[in-house]
Design a protein around this nucleic acid. Structure first.
Lengths: 216, 216
DNA sequence: CCATGTGAACAAATTCACAGCA
DNA sequence: TGCTGTGAATTTGTTCACATGG
């Protein structure tokens, strides 16, 4: 019963649960209760139940959840039971690393091609991934059937490139450039700003500093 | 008036505002209203005001905020007015990319050293960053004064390494391994699982698919 | 009897709407 | 007049506690 839209928060937890379940499956466990799962991975049992209950009754009262069934259900829900093709845009440091990192996935995601404007890079490869020039964008999207664009491009170019990959037929975007994009409402778009994570830690360190100073 | 703890959500927005303000400063703007800021960067004006008001009255009614003053205030708050030294742990694909990526910051963060267990890497450098062996962990932390550890290590090793860097005197951790760490309550710790972002997009694509299928 | 599924209580975050000040 | 700062209203998310069913 996939009623309304699932919140991003919930969705992220589902990914997490899935990861935990896979682990348990490897360990040969066939059944798990919300409490066990919570204890084992530092989660909240009530929340696990709430989250899972959104999609119908999957547990067996008095017993728990069937690890295999639940794994499959969550995989399906997140669309991980098929392969998504990724187009990497920007083959610099971060881009190249992402190309390798995101591919070694369990076949749910695969980087199929890259675009970069540097003439020295065009025609070469990152791992097995061929690098094309910006002019070929449309052709590459068509030929590879890439659905997701991963943007690892300079800040000032991000918006323009965003618009262009959508124009070229990309269905969703994961953006690593630190800009607030003007989004296309029809294209699921997610932005990740790696600096923000550091800055949050910066604040925490700062705050402790102030606290200890005051304590003396 | 930094009353209570600031939530992670708020903190992340503050980073964002700061980035926007820097941009405006470059453009020569000296004053900006919450509404302008919101329009320009697709944010919420009310939220900007709420967020900023937590730290005292910074705006001028009828006018807006002083770009320079606010920039400085936010920098200070986030601890960006001094340099934080980062120790990179794990110099694989992702690690190496992060070393370069996180360093080109505005001097608020600098990767000062890396640790890797691969004997072939020990003694070499990523960019300007020297790679040390795990045995030197404690010494390196002491000598460099590194405050933040960035973990880009295999999943199964992450927990052990987490415990060890803290043992070695690291003050906060940014973890890229896809595990729920058992955290030290005294050490600000942030985990980033890059796959989760992709999986969220996977869901959105999946959901659209289902929706369009049903519509036919 | 035991763990799920869930309504009700609670908490957090966001948005609204406007009083108050430059 | 125009925009901030803020209580109050609303929405969203989490936790509690227990009735329900295998």
């Amino acid at each position: 019963m996939p009623t309304g839209a699932i919140s991003s928060l919930t969705l992220n937890r589902l990914s997490l649960y899935l990861r935990c379940l896979r682990r348990l499956r490897e360990e040969g466990l066939s059944t798990v209760s919300s409490l066990t799962l919570a204890d084992r991975f530092h989660l909240s049992a009530a929340q696990i139940r709430k989250d899972l209950a959104q999609f119908g009754e999957f547990g067996i009262r008095g017993v728990g959840y069937d690890v295999n069934k639940l794994t499959d259900r969550l995989s399906g829900l997140l669309g991980l039971d098929r392969t998504h093709s990724i187009l990497l845009v920007g083959a610099g440091n971060l881009g190249s690393a992402l190309a390798r990192f995101l591919s070694f996935e369990d076949r749910s995601f695969r980087v199929v091609a890259a675009i970069d404007s540097d003439p020295k890079k065009i025609g070469t490869e990152i791992g097995e991934v061929p690098i094309h020039g910006p002019a070929e964008l449309q052709t590459v999207v068509r030929n590879t059937g890439a659905e997701i664009a991963v943007l690892a491009v300079p800040t000032d170019e991000a918006q323009e490139i965003y618009d262009r990959v959508i124009e070229a037929g990309i269905r969703s975007v994961l953006n690593f450039a630190p800009v607030r994009l003007a989004r296309d409402p029809d294209v699921p778009t997610k932005s990740v700003d790696l600096r923000i994570f550091l800055e949050e830690l910066g604040y925490q360190l700062q705050a402790r500093q102030v606290a200890t100073d005051a304590a003396t």
